[in-house]
Amino acid sequence: MKTITKIFTMAAAVALFATTSLNAQTMMETDPNPAPKGMGFKVGVGINGGVFRDKSPMDYAYGADLKLQWDLTPYVAVTASGGYTKLIAKDNAVDADFIPAKGGVKVFPIKRMYLATEAGAGIAIQDGAKTNFIYSGGLGYEFGGFDAGVRYEGYVNDSASTTYFRKTGQYAVRLAYNFKL
């Protein structure tokens, strides 16, 4: 009886496997970083605002910018930006208006989140004002076409400038929308 049970079990198993179609599961590859593969371009239009430390001669700042982003790899991009920034001074001092022209690098260590650094010049608009050296570092997050970031932006001014202020910096927020080219 045991032999008949074994034969019957084996026959049932063979019949089951013969009539069932087997499909291997396919695994879809997902990229942890949404940046485009290879080289791609984006143009971002943004607004920003910031506040200064208590010891600074400046109170707050606001501005707008246009940023070109060239994605070298899915994890590294080179940036160039220009725009307008106004620094509002404390205690009836002279406000500073300038056109920032900066270049930098963005690194995407995790999905959609980036670390960014930039350096460049703040070309003064007022008569007698000198060009500032600008440097910044921060982090941000890209989602959809939107870009939200925070940064520290430092300014070094020439003492011969009519809008001179000692070395200072702002803590700023930037909100932008990126257009793919």
Results as ranks from 00 to 15, higher is better:
Ala12Val: 05
Leu139Tyr: 02
Glu142Ala: 10
Tyr155Met: 15
Gly38Val: 03
Leu16Trp: 04
Gly128Ile: 06
Gly169Val: 01
Gly104Ala: 05
Lys180Gln: 10
Tyr177Leu: 08
Leu22Tyr: 14
Tyr62Gln: 08
Thr9Ala: 12
Ser161Cys: 11
Met58Gln: 10
Ile47Cys: 07
Phe143Ile: 10
Val43Lys: 01
Thr117Ser: 14
Val150Gln: 02
Gly63Cys: 03
Leu181Glu: 05
Glu29Met: 13
Phe165Gln: 14
Val156Gly: 10
Pro57Ala: 13
Gly104Trp: 02
Asp65His: 13
Met28Cys: 07
Gly50Cys: 06
Asn48Glu: 10
Asn132Cys: 05
Leu68Thr: 10
Gly122Ser: 10
Leu115Cys: 10
Met27Arg: 14
Val43Asp: 02
Lys130Val: 06
Tyr60Met: 12
Ala61Cys: 09
Lys55Phe: 06
Phe52Val: 10
Phe179Asp: 08
Asp59Ala: 08
Gly44Ser: 15
Gly149Lys: 04
Gly82Ala: 14
Ile47Gly: 15
Ala93Glu: 06
Ser21Cys: 07
Tyr164Asp: 03
Ala176Pro: 05
Thr30Ser: 14
Lys37Trp: 00
Ala13Asp: 02
Ala77Lys: 01
Ala160Trp: 01
Pro109Ser: 05
Val107Thr: 13
Leu115Lys: 07
Ala176Asn: 05
Leu181Ser: 03
Gly103Arg: 01
Asn48Val: 02
Ala12Ile: 00
Phe179Lys: 12
Arg151Ala: 14
Gly154Tyr: 00
Pro109Arg: 06
Tyr164Ala: 10
Glu153Cys: 11
Ser161Trp: 04
Asn132Ile: 01
Thr117Glu: 02
Thr30Ala: 13
Ser159Leu: 02
Arg151Gly: 03
Val78Ser: 04
